[in-house]
Design a binder for these strands. Sequence first.
RNA 1: GGGUCGGUAGCUCAGUCGGUAGAGCACGGGACUGAAAAUCCCGGUGUCGGCAGUUCGAUUCUGCCCUGACCCA
Length: 318
Amino acid sequence: MIIAAAEKPRVVIILGPTAAGKTRAAIEMAPRFSGEIISADSMQVYRYLNIGTAKPKAEEQRSVRHHLIDVVDPDEEYSAARFAEEAGLCIEKIIAQGKVPFIVGGTGLYIDSLLGGLIEGPPADPELRAYYKRHAVQHGSSDLHQLLHRRDAAAAARIHPHDTVRIIRALEVWEYTGRSIVSRQRDHGFKEERYYCIKIGLNAERSHLFERISERATRMIQDGLIQEVEDLLSRGYPDRCLPLQSFSYRSVMEFLKGKLSIEEMHSIIARDTRHYAKRQLTWFKRDNHIVWFKPRESDRIEETVRQFLESPDTRPVD
RNA sequence: GGGUCGGUAGCUCAGUCGGUAGAGCACGGGACUGAAAAUCCCGGUGUCGGCAGUUCGAUUCUGCCCUGACCCA
């Protein structure tokens, strides 16, 4: 008896730095291939954060089915692991309907953990994290790094003494499993390959991208970003909660406290967004499976997606 | 017209008792495995306003010019 190898689910990924035109491209492409969109954006999962996260507008979300937008409240926790799990379920459902999943977003870690899985490890322990964070504030992050060094020297060697977030995660993994986070990372490398995918990268010339970022910041303010923040605060969400600490929102709160003029607020939002775009590009650059396009190259993108969807399931050669 | 204080990196400024200069931010590069729009690391990119003088050597001292702010007329 011959057992045919089960084909891996086919998914289309659209990724790239912020403001490169991913949303637009996705809304244009998905209907042509009877696709549904799964947002891979760590901020668009939050309800009520619409303008500042450049969430697709209501009518855009109606034109194509969207998933993993507005799934948690702003004071809830979300994580790469949860994303990978939920996005995986969405993919199953979409494929069961004979449709094509389009994963669209700029959160590189989310995309990689969906495609390649995360290392085995304990979930976040908020109390433990708060405890170590206090320690770092009182004694300095280097002191916390010393503590990690005593328990898990291999992890300490790979994590910078100032990188509090990673020091804490390494300690968390150590305490729950008694094993080093690095021994797990070493062989993992997001290599799992759960899906057969094409990665469409969207990017523009740096100067052009920066112009788009500045224009978008202007538009967000015109569209009512300040009101959005006031609404969030009046709903009772504390300004400390994670999504409100993200770049578009924290500057608005500084403005509301009178610490920034509106012009300063705009330029700081634009600056922080530029920095973010650069970090995203650094993340994506090391992935040589991405096929890069400029914004507005719909025809070429469509052609590439079509070839991928019609091709037999053979992995492209590196 | 006279006077005072300025002109140094993209911006704000420091500095050189004469040996061609350095901070913050911007900007560039990088890391990243359950916080990732988070967190962190590395990098100075320059006719020192212009021209002349003194000097072995001038961004630094002198003179003139240009230019900005302020003050007096």
